[in-house]
Amino acid sequence: MNLIAYLIIAVEIGFWVFIAAGLVTRYLFGRKRLGLLLLAITPVLDLTLLIATTVDILANDATATAAHGIAAIYLGVSLTFGKRMIRWADERFRYHLMKKGPKPVKRYGFDHARHELSGSLLHVLAWMLGGGYLFLLVRLAGNPGQTEVLLQILKVWTLVAAIDVALSLSYFIWPRKAKADSFR
């Protein structure tokens, strides 16, 4: 495993550590500003990964690996889904650990389909951001042999994003139904 792969793992762990620390600080210690600051550090982790990946390929003339491509995917997903993931964690933290706030919503029917489609559209945006970054790296490196794996990853990601959108659209045709009450 190369340095970028280790950095991806460290950034992902750091992301969840800072979210947990921010939520604990906010709700258990009542320090809302400090909690917000801890939550706001997560984009700094993404920036660190972005800089490291770019420097590794462009300045160090490293041959791109799958880890470089995964770093781009991670960056695109983190930028587009980061706020949603923090909100998801915040809702569950308040409900399950603090015993405050509303129960997290289970979605069915058109509401579920719309929610899934919004997630798929965010995935397309993540693909555009991460894919744009991959394409930029390929162009700036100027050496197809050095960056071939990045284009392969982009092809696979394109297929995954298309399948995600198709699945989300299927919920409009076959909506998710609430489970029948087992006590009836």
Rank of each mutant, 00 (worst) to 15 (best):
Asp111Val: 07
Met128Ser: 07
Thr48Glu: 05
Lys103Ile: 10
Val77Pro: 04
Thr158Met: 10
Ala161Tyr: 11
Leu49Cys: 03
Ala89Met: 08
Arg84Met: 07
His115Ile: 04
Ala66Ile: 14
Leu34Trp: 06
Glu148Tyr: 15
Asn60Ala: 06
Leu58Cys: 04
Gly142Met: 03
Gly142Tyr: 14
Ala178Arg: 15
Ser182Ile: 12
Met128Cys: 09
Phe135Lys: 02
Gln152Phe: 15
Gln152Ile: 14
Phe18Ser: 00
Ala10Asp: 05
Met1Thr: 05
Ala62Pro: 03
Tyr27Lys: 03
Ser170Asn: 10
Val105Glu: 15
Lys106Gly: 01
Gly130Gln: 09
Ala141His: 04
Val44Asp: 00
Met1Ala: 08
Thr54Asn: 12
Val44Glu: 03
Val165Arg: 12
Arg33Glu: 02
Leu125Val: 06
Leu28His: 14
Thr80Leu: 15
Ala71His: 12
Val24Gly: 00
Leu49His: 09
Phe172Cys: 01
Asp111Asn: 04
Arg184Cys: 01
Arg94Cys: 06
Trp157Val: 00
Ala113Thr: 00
Glu148Leu: 15
Val55His: 11
Ile4Arg: 13
Ser78Ile: 13
Ile19Cys: 07
Lys179Thr: 07
Leu45Val: 03
Phe183Ser: 08
Phe81Gly: 00
Leu38Asn: 04
Ala67Glu: 04
Thr42Gly: 00
Ala62Tyr: 13
Ala178Val: 10
Leu117Phe: 11
Thr147Ala: 06
Val165Gly: 02
Gly14Pro: 12
Ala161Lys: 01
Ala141Asp: 05
Gly69His: 10
Trp174Ile: 09
Gly30Glu: 05
His123Ser: 09
Ile41Gly: 01
His68Thr: 02
Leu140Lys: 10
His112Trp: 10
Arg94Tyr: 06
Trp127Lys: 00
Tyr74Ala: 00
Tyr133Ser: 00
Gly145Gln: 12
Lys32Ser: 05
Gly119Phe: 12
Ala89Leu: 13
Leu125Phe: 13
Tyr6Cys: 03
Val124Ser: 04
Asp90Trp: 13
Ile86Asn: 00
Phe93Lys: 01
Lys103Trp: 13
His96Gln: 08
Leu154Asn: 05
Leu159Cys: 05
Leu122Thr: 00
Ala21Asn: 00
Thr65Cys: 05
Ser182Leu: 12
Arg114Pro: 01
Arg184Asn: 03
Ile51Met: 13
Leu37Lys: 07
Tyr6Thr: 02
Leu117His: 07
Ser182Met: 08
Leu169Trp: 13
Leu154Glu: 03
Leu47Asp: 01
Asp181Gln: 09
Ala64Gly: 03
Leu23Pro: 04
Val77Gln: 14
Lys100Phe: 08
Leu37Asn: 04
Asp61Cys: 06
Ser170Pro: 03
Ala71Val: 11
Arg26Thr: 11
Phe135Leu: 12
Leu154Ile: 05
Ile4Met: 11
Ile19Val: 15
Ala21Leu: 14
Ala162Leu: 15
Val124Asp: 02
Ile4Ser: 08
Asp61Asn: 14
Phe183Leu: 08
Gly132Ser: 06
Gln152Asp: 10
Leu134Lys: 08
Ala72Met: 14
Ser120Phe: 15
Leu37Thr: 12
Arg33Ser: 07
Asp164Val: 05
Ala59Asp: 11
Lys179Gln: 13
